[in-house]
Amino acid sequence: NLYFQGLKYMVPGARVTRGLDWKWRDQDGSPQGEGTVTGELHNGWIDVTWDAGGSNSYRMGAEGKFDLKLAP
């Protein structure tokens, strides 16, 4: 699974964008943008601060869902 392989790169400072299971509307800005991981992966959740200004926790394994992917 590509998403599980990418988890080791989901570290503080990593750049991310919305992924396969995104369901959080425009939390990442409008139009959709990139963000920066600000915390360690914990119980399948990870913290992100978006360039647009907001921050929140997103699923990276929790509930079998992956809200994020590494930015290109």
Score class of each variant (00 low, 15 high):
65 K>L: 04
21 D>N: 09
13 G>M: 05
7 L>C: 15
16 V>A: 01
11 V>H: 09
72 P>I: 13
44 G>V: 04
62 A>S: 08
9 Y>V: 08
52 A>E: 08
35 G>C: 02
59 R>E: 01
58 Y>Q: 03
22 W>P: 03
38 T>G: 05
6 G>C: 15
29 G>T: 05
28 D>M: 04
71 A>R: 08
7 L>P: 07
48 V>Q: 00
26 D>K: 06
64 G>K: 06
61 G>Y: 03
20 L>M: 13
16 V>K: 01
32 Q>P: 15
19 G>H: 05
46 I>W: 03
43 N>H: 12
2 L>E: 15
55 S>K: 11
17 T>N: 07
26 D>I: 06
43 N>V: 07
31 P>F: 08
9 Y>K: 09
31 P>I: 08
32 Q>N: 14
17 T>R: 13
16 V>H: 01
56 N>K: 07
17 T>Q: 12
36 T>P: 02
11 V>I: 13
30 S>H: 12
12 P>E: 10
21 D>S: 06
23 K>G: 07
36 T>M: 08
36 T>C: 10
6 G>D: 15
38 T>Y: 06
20 L>D: 12
59 R>A: 00
47 D>S: 14
70 L>S: 05
30 S>T: 14
70 L>Y: 09
44 G>Y: 02
41 L>N: 06
50 W>D: 00
45 W>F: 05
36 T>N: 04
12 P>V: 12
1 N>H: 14
4 F>I: 12
32 Q>A: 14
37 V>Y: 01
18 R>F: 08
21 D>F: 05
51 D>H: 04
55 S>H: 11
71 A>H: 07
47 D>L: 14
50 W>C: 00
23 K>L: 07
67 D>A: 02
29 G>S: 06
63 E>G: 12
6 G>Q: 15
29 G>Q: 06
17 T>Y: 06
13 G>H: 04
8 K>P: 10
53 G>I: 01
49 T>G: 05
58 Y>L: 02
41 L>D: 03
2 L>V: 13
14 A>K: 06
69 K>P: 00
8 K>N: 10
57 S>G: 07
35 G>Q: 00
5 Q>W: 14
47 D>C: 15
6 G>K: 11
72 P>T: 13
33 G>Y: 05
15 R>M: 03
7 L>I: 12
22 W>R: 03
17 T>G: 07
45 W>V: 03
52 A>G: 09
19 G>I: 07
34 E>H: 13
41 L>C: 10
70 L>R: 07
10 M>S: 03
5 Q>F: 12
13 G>S: 04
30 S>V: 14
64 G>P: 00
20 L>G: 10
53 G>H: 03
61 G>S: 04
19 G>N: 08
23 K>R: 09
72 P>W: 13
65 K>T: 03
13 G>L: 04
